[in-house]
Design a protein around this nucleic acid. Sequence first.
DNA 1: AATACGTGGGC
DNA 2: TGCCCAAGTAT
Length: 366
Amino acid sequence: MNNLHVLEKINIPQFREDIISWFQMEQRDLPWRKDQDPYKVWVSEIMLQQTRVDTVIPYFNRFMEWFPSLQSLADADEEKVLKAWEGLGYYSRVKNLQSAVREVAQEYNGIVPDTLEEISKLKGVGPYTAGAILSIAYGRPEPAVDGNVMRVLSRILLIEEDIAKPKTRKIFEEAVRRLIDDNHTSAFNQALMELGAMICTPGVPACLLCPVRDHCEAYAEGVQSQLPVKNLKKRSRDVPIAAAVITNSRQEILIRKRPAKGLLADLWEFPNYEDHASLTTKRESFRQQFQEQIHVIPELGEHLISIEHIFSHLVWKMDVYLGTAEGITEDMLISQQMKWVAETEVEHYAFPVSHQKIWKAYLEKK
DNA sequence: AATACGTGGGC
DNA sequence: TGCCCAAGTAT
């Protein structure tokens, strides 16, 4: 509504030409920009959610080696898919992706749907991803509003709504609908994002290099560094964890599969439990706690390492010990979703980064 | 609407 | 060190 009054001032055809020609000249050479294969666009967009380009590149390349086609991903072993995502974070993304890819293989004959209604039904495909795939792979004039687009347009159009609020995205979608070049939807949407990544950055943007500086209301008023407005209030809580690398007489390592839902779903880890005891008490009660909570009674060895791992919403403060255990029955392993694996096999399982640190410490200790 | 959901990099 | 950020989605 009133938020978009600046739109009236914009010379829209000129704006389109300026930002699109800049993009065509300056865009980065990225592996998912080699063609418009909807499958590749899809995978890249999922990987790029809340994740930097530089981080994604090696993951994307390896993913395409392992799963070169939509059908190959649909057919792939779930453990291998999770391993391909190991270290990328937000692991539900890849579980949803494979689930959705299987849906496409089955219900759409392997063709990624090209309508907003159908593509939006796929797991893990929200408003942004739907618009990105439709505009980049299919040339549909749909907005693809991510954090970059909100930052760029908040400045150009002097929009002061809090971009942390869910409903704010709709304002920007409306702006894009009015601005988008119907004949160059892919370049236009990507140009908005590329500009946000390369020029119109958070903090102090590089306005002197900006191809659409002359269209920018925030620049005209000198308030670009104060936009976008974003009010976040999230505090993380500390979670004390006691963990152990437990071996048996055959030098095998005890690992456990995490639950299918929630934090780090379906990843593997070393046995551990939440422990609020003090550090000194902890070591003494460790054996009993393990028996009660993991149903394993290890002989406690020395302290291996202390690790602090920071998530976006909580902090694990882990104390890791060495331990040995014998006589664990098959029933116990199954009920606890645990298994013994040879040292050389550990690397074949997908672990969260926090537990990769444990394994690294264990190997260095030996 | 507010919160859960990962990780690594920049300053 | 600590806080913010990065091509969001599900509930």
